[in-house]
Design a protein around this nucleic acid. Structure first.
Length: 738
RNA sequence: GCCGCCUUAGCUCAGUGGUAGAGCAAUGCUUUCGUAAAGCAUAGGUCCUGGGUUCGAAUCCCAGAGGCGGCUCCA
């Protein structure tokens, strides 16, 4: 017998072979009808699955009310969508079709591409399937037979997946619904009729197994709910969220613009946006001074050598603006040197390299078709020989070299004499050289160098997005040079600083991500011991602060682990804002030292940190957070004086001048328009306070206050209003107080 | 970078091969008004760019640029 512990902590015994559905029926008829799936020891299973034969297990029937049930429903809806697609697009092959908060999708490879125009047709077919309310039936096959079945169904991607990953399992499960059979782990809803409402949302490209070297499939996104009402509420919520879009509000409120001529991904801050940014910068600067930081300024470019030493170049070559050399030949030779130095490379790197060559217009057609990597390297070598000759570069060491590695070294040596520059992709190397400019005693540490440092990264075109993903941005950056015994206190202080800023701005909806090294990846530098030390230290600090977090391997910076504060934008995409990163690596690369109490040299540890992340991204998220309605202390225009008619212009100007005198960001709307029109405009501009002035106010020296959020607040003497205003600004209130 | 969609006045958008349109904004005049839109008039165009098909292209075809939604990437 098996013992099942129900959510109310009562227990129930069942004979071997009993299904969850039977248990539900034994509890109550209505529960059985409402049942979607069951949860056994935390694992969601089909209602028709046999329960374990013995032992004690936690057991719960999932109904529409359980969020987990929604995922099951959506996954089943993905199957129904796939079934409809299989009917309408002969020869379609299925890949993966998961569900989650985003809804569901199915990756599909179809000889006839699916287009947006086809959505209605697919939905109509899905509706027929749902109306029939057929059951989902699970069956298992031995893995070899499962492979044969998938092959018979002409599902080559499923076969490939079995061969690559699933073959380690002895048997695999399938679900059948009518004519549609799909390799699937489940679980599923009992029958299609449970789907109350669904909609196909979008279609996009997605790589097979999320691997950019594999073929691209079509990813069909959809959403499903138990009721039509839920679907409508969802669609309404999406529409509302889109109104907060910073790209839209940025335009409407004249905060920033992007010009094709200046370049994509390069933000032009308009006066109002610049005002908000300036206030934020002042806020941060004041806080940093309090916390023992020293301001520094460094240039926007630096010598290539600097970034070769730091490892940023050529490691991130694909994400950087091309290096600048005086000598035209150097750029080309640089690219050749890069290839020769890399030697044997994988497909992905090769693909990237070919892209650089194309951009530089130096890709010989025979390179792509070369039979081997060795042949490719030889080809590059021949190309270099020609270049050296034609461009009259004298480089005897290159000619003396006997292999590609030596040739790469010879070229590098030459390139190092060529004064190449790079738009700076990071501030750290510059700050490091400020540290290195003088010797340091252990007594001076921690040294904290802060700068609003503007960096440039050549992000892929498909990544650019308003202010949240750009090619030039300013980090509220700082680098801390610390002793090993200071790691914990400094790291902790920085996390607390980030939290302080988030709290001040009311940003409560964020998650904390610990970025750790993925031991399987080669992209990380430094020793495994250093990584372990750093990661253990970091996790310990976060735990001791009692924060909930997710530790994610593969999310670390290449030089060290980090903690990121991640927020969502108006359509649910994750963006990294604040970040604190621990770095044992760059101090080594730059040979940083301090003199210890033992009068011997010691190596400092670095912390990189940026509470906002970048001014651009932070501003973008902040616009969405406040839906453009900035609190008084941040509002670019805090007060607008509105005259009831032209007759009160003089008094309006007087009020405006008085406020300006007290550093209020104020404007006056003295046009001969109706007051209602002026109010409407000020509301749309999201001005926190409107001051209506007319006959009454003029005679009594008062203003009629209207708040953006609360409407008419009545009449106040000017002095009193200004006092209230100043208090509200001073305490950085998030809600209006007048 | 890849897949798909989009690009018409400052903004939001109509316009399916035959004279380039609307609303809002702008400008001018009238109105002097009390808490979310006063009235009239005027001006405003490289229909993203380049090529092609056609007697004729905003409209059809090709290439490119930019934007949007995904994917990959994100120091």
């Amino acid at each position: 017998m098996v013992v099942l512990r129900l959510p109310d902590n009562s227990t129930r015994e069942a004979a071997p072979g009993t299904t969850a559905k039977q248990i539900a029926e034994s509890i109550g008829k209505r529960l059985a009808q409402a049942a979607i799936a069951a949860k056994v020891d935390g694992e969601i299973v089909d209602l028709n699955r046999e329960l374990p034969a013995d032992g004690e297990h936690s057991f719960q029937i999932l109904t529409e009310k359980d969020p987990d049930a929604l995922d099951v429903l959506r996954h089943s809806c993905a199957h129904i969508m796939a079934r409809a697609v299989m009917r309408l697009f002969p020869g379609a092959q299925l890949a993966f079709g998961p569900a989650g908060d985003f809804g569901y999708y199915y990756d599909i490879e179809s000889p006839t591409p699916i287009r947006e125009d086809d959505f209605a047709k697919i939905e109509a077919e899905m509706k027929q399937i749902v109306d029939k309310a057929e059951t989902f039936d699970r069956f298992e096959l031995a893995t070899t037979e499962a492979r044969t079945l998938c092959a018979d169904l002409k599902q080559a991607l499923k076969v490939e997946h079995i061969d690559e990953e699933l073959k380690k399992h002895p048997s695999l499960s399938f679900y059948r619904q009518g004519e549609f059979v799909d390799l699937c782990r489940g679980p599923h809803i009992p029958h299609a009729g449970k789907i109350g409402a669904f909609k196909i949302l979008s279609i996009a490209g997605a790589y097979w197994k999320n691997d950019s070297t594999r073929p691209q499939l079509q990813r069909l996104y959809g959403i499903a709910f138990f009721s039509q009402k839920d679907l409508e509420a969802y669609l309404h919520r999406i529409e509302e969220a889109k109104r907060r879009d910073h790209r839209l509000l940025g335009k409407q409120l004249k905060l920033f613009t992007i010009s094709q001529m200046v370049g994509s991904g390069l933000i032009l801050w308009m006066p109002k946006g610049a005002t908000v940014r300036g206030i934020l910068e002042t806020f941060i600067k004041d806080e940093l001074v309090k916390r023992g930081y020293s301001p520094v300024y460094t240039p926007h470019i630096g010598r290539l050598e600097l970034y070769r030493t730091s490892g940023h170049f050529p490691y991130y070559r694909d994400a950087q603006f091309p290096p600048m050399y005086h000598r035209p030949a150097a750029g080309t030779l640089d690219l050749c040197q890069y290839r020769l130095a890399m030697g044997e490379i994988d497909d992905k790197r090769e693909h990237e390299y070919i892209e650089y060559m194309k951009q530089a217009h130096m890709l010989p057609p025979e390179y792509i078709n070369a039979p081997s990597q060795a042949a490719k390297l030889d080809m590059i070598h021949e190309f270099v020989l020609r270049l050296l000759k034609e461009l009259q570069v004298v480089l005897p060491e290159y000619h003396r070299a006997t292999n590609h590695k030596e040739r790469a070294d010879a070229l590098l040596k030459w390139l190092m004499d060529q004064e190449g520059f790079l738009l700076k992709p990071m501030n750290c190397p510059h700050h490091i050289h400020i540290y290195k400019a003088e010797p340091h005693s252990y007594r001076e540490l921690p040294i904290r160098l802060a700068e609003f440092g503007t960096v440039y990264r050549y992000e892929q075109t498909g990544e650019l997005n308003g202010m949240t993903r750009v090619r030039g941005f300013t980090q509220d950056d700082a680098h801390l040079f610390i002793r090993p015994d200071q790691v914990e206190s400094e790291f902790r202080a920085n996390i607390e600083f980030v939290l302080f800023i988030f709290r001040t701005l009311g940003l409560n909806d964020y998650r904390v991500r610990l970025g750790f090294r993925d031991p399987a990846s080669t992209k990380y530098v430094g020793s495994a011991e250093d990584w372990d030390t750093a990661q253990t230290a970091l996790e310990g600090i976060v735990k001791s602060l009692g924060m909930s977090y997710s530790a994610e391997p593969g999310e670390a910076a290449f030089y060290g682990p980090k903690i990121d504060f991640v927020v969502k934008d108006c359509i649910g995409r994750d963006w990294q804002l604040g970040t604190v990163q621990l770095d044992y690596n760059l101090p080594k690369r730059f040979d940083l030292e301090f003199v210890g109490a033992d009068n011997k040299p010691h190596r400092p540890i670095m912390i990189h940190r940026a509470p906002f992340g970048s001014m651009e991204r932070f501003m973008g998220i902040l616009i969405e957070h406040f839906a453009g309605a900035f609190p008084l202390w941040l509002a670019p225009e805090q007060v607008r004086v509105l005259t009831v008619s032209d007759k009160f212009r003089e008094y309006g100007e007087k009020v405006e001048a008085q406020l300006r005198e007290r550093d209020v960001r104020v404007t006056g709307d003295f046009r001969p328009d109706k007051i209602g029109a002026k109010i409407r405009e000020a509301q749309l501009d999201k001005i926190p306070y409107m001051l209506v002035v007319g006959d009454k106010e003029q005679t009594t020296g008062t203003v009629a206050v209207r708040s953006r959020s609360a409407g008419d607040r009545g009449v106040l003497p000017i002095a009193e209003f200004m006092e209230e205003l100043e208090t509200e600004v001073k305490c950085k209130s998030l809600t209006p107080t007048v």
